[in-house]
């Protein structure tokens, strides 16, 4: 479903040598239809850059991105949006604060369409929205005309999640989407995520810094370090892993880095 082929991305190419950073180093990845992949890695490992390249926020220096067989590398962010559903780390980014829940969801229904001059509010949509919001069990279905800016962070992420999946995306991108929430709400949102992904059989990539979550959810786990994939486990192998195993791996990598620095 999603294929990343030899992607390299450097930052600050024109700057001083110390400031240049190779964020992604000839990285390749094949994600199959229905995979729920969790990605972990330290700071600067390239997780967010990878997600941004997939989403088209900026182009790679070299390499290609294919979604469902189609080469989307040249498509800009908004043109690629029709294939992707995205939830961001910052709850404020996923929704338009001064617009109502209904308006936000209306926007989501047209993610893959041209924006015409037809009236933006559709009665047929309202019922669907209410059903959808009701499934969240947050009481939002009765607050359709309330401005999204008044909702709590967790509620906004839930709405963003609905918006991302309302029109079935080919790939669902979750960029540490519970990192800014308190543990209880984070749990709720993750469970919600899991339910939706399973119900709709969505191909999903989830970046998380929580190793327990990385193991609990999904069928495949990838670890990035210095812009490369150093660890990729699926199915049974993944189930056998514990958070301590992952921590050990991190420590190994840190020691490697230190050795390199000292040499």
């Amino acid at each position: 479903m999603l294929k990343i082929e030899n992607i390299t991305k450097e930052f600050n190419l024109t700057g001083a040598i110390e400031d240049r950073r190779i964020a992604l180093n000839n990285i390749s990845l094949d994600i199959h239809d229905g995979d729920f992949v969790t990605i972990i890695g330290g700071n600067g490992s390239g997780k967010s850059t990878l997600m941004n390249i997939i989403a088209g926020v900026f182009p790679p220096d070299s390499g290609n991105v294919y979604i469902d067989g189609e080469n989307v590398t040249k498509l800009t962010e908004y043109k690629r949006a029709k294939y992707l559903g995205r939830v961001f780390q910052d709850p404020n980014v996923g929704t338009a604060p001064n617009m109502s829940i209904e308006e936000n969801m209306e926007l989501a229904t047209r993610r893959d369409q041209k924006k015409t001059l037809r009236w933006g509010f559709r009665k047929e949509h309202r019922d669907k929205f209410i059903k959808s919001l009701a499934s969240l069990n947050l009481g939002l279905e009765t607050r359709l005309s309330q401005k999204v800016g008044l909702l709590s962070g967790g509620q906004r992420q839930a709405v963003t999640l609905l918006m991302a999946t309302f029109k079935r995306p080919k790939v669902l991108l979750l960029d540490e989407h519970t990192a800014a929430l308190d543990p209880k709400t984070a749990r709720k949102v993750l469970e919600l995520t899991d339910t939706i992904v399973h119900d709709q059989h969505l191909t999903t990539i989830m970046i998380t810094h929580n190793m327990r979550d990385a193991l609990k959810y999904g069928n495949r786990l990838i670890m990035l370090h210095h812009g490369q994939i150093i660890f990729d486990v699926k199915g049974e192998e993944k189930n056998k892993l514990t958070p301590e195993d992952l921590l050990k791996k991190f420590d190994e990598l840190e020691n490697q880095d230190e050795e390199e620095l000292n040499n």
Partner: peptide, 10 residues
Amino acid sequence: MNQKMARAQG
């Protein structure tokens, strides 16, 4: 209101 979100919605 939110350019990033707008682009994510196509």
